[in-house]
């Protein structure tokens, strides 16, 4: 195995386009890649360590929202006043993300590229309608996050492409993130969800909910939110509607049945106590 450590974006994109794709892996934070490498599940001939690319670092406030460099670490997001103020659901997901040793290395683009259904930043990023700026030697394109993630560990990333940055539009209303793990710290989500709403004169005017670890990708609970916005208040109906948009599985952390039940109960409780649980 050979490790390449480019300092310039151009050099990195050249490497990505020239090295044989099947034997080349991008190394960002490495927190997911290293265990898989040690177990022999990923054995690249060529490893491109992109950590030195200054162009992919940092959080910028833009006219329409924010742009986050792909290499921005989870800990940097957690310490960002901008993220805390404007994207509280994303901020809350970083607060509950592993321990500091992982957060100091793990990157936002890495969490996206891994495309785990339980990736903690993904429910908030879907909720905020994040887009990705993807760069290759020949082209730059911007796509919606939900068009990038295709399934567990699968993306529509093309040969030679690198996630340059994550673009977040300006958000209205209140939002928050909830994660249920098997313990409070260092836990992978059994279920998680992110929720955003607006109210006017005590009436709900806007509501969106995304849920993680209950389907092959993050899902929008559109059946539920449409009904709630139309005045449906029966929580039994709510739970049935949540069921329409999710497809949980049994795994080492929980059964499909438990996931369905617990997500229904948590979201019902949340919607009945919006102002308290998801405060301004």
């Amino acid at each position: 195995m050979k490790i390449y450590q480019p300092y310039g974006l151009g050099d990195c994109l050249d490497l990505l386009s020239e090295l044989p794709q099947a034997e080349t892996v991008i190394l960002a934070g490495g927190t997911d890649l290293m265990p898989r490498y040690e177990q022999g599940k990923v054995l690249p001939e060529h490893l491109i360590n992109i950590k030195h690319l200054a162009d992919l670092q940092g959080i910028t406030e833009t006219e329409n929202g924010a742009e986050i460099g792909g290499l921005t670490t989870i800990e940097t997001l957690r310490r960002s006043g901008l993220i805390h103020r404007d994207y509280p659901a994303l901020w809350q997901s970083t607060e509950q993300f592993a321990g500091v040793q992982i957060r100091n290395r793990a990157t936002l683009a890495g969490n996206i590229a891994n495309a785990s259904p339980a990736g903690d930043t993904l429910s908030p990023l879907y909720l905020y309608h994040a887009k990705l700026k993807l760069m290759s030697r020949h082209a730059t394109r911007t796509i919606r996050l939900e068009d990038f993630i295709a399934g567990p560990g699968e993306t529509t990333q093309e040969r030679g492409e690198l996630i340059h940055s994550i673009i977040l539009p300006r958000v209205t209303g209140s939002s928050c993130f909830y994660k249920l793990g098997l313990r409070e710290a260092m836990a992978i989500s059994v279920v998680n969800y992110a929720l955003r709403y607006s109210q006017s004169a005590g009436e709900l005017t806007d509501l969106e909910i995304t849920a993680g670890a209950v389907a092959p990708t993050i899902v929008f609970l559109d059946a539920l939110t449409t009904a709630v916005l139309s005045g449906e208040t029966n929580s039994t109906v709510w739970r049935a509607l949540i069921g329409q948009d999710i497809a949980p599985i049994d795994d080492i952390r929980a059964s499909a049945d438990y996931r369905r039940k617990v997500l229904g109960r948590l979201i019902t409780h949340h919607l009945q106590n919006l102002g308290v649980v998801c405060h301004e």
Binding site: M34, L47, V100, N104
Partner: peptide, 15 residues
């Protein structure tokens, strides 16, 4: 200056 797990890093990355 940052706390990290040294088991998750290639030594070459610390160059």
């Amino acid at each position: 200056g940052k706390a990290v797990n040294s088991c998750l890093i290639f030594a070459a990355e610390s160059h």
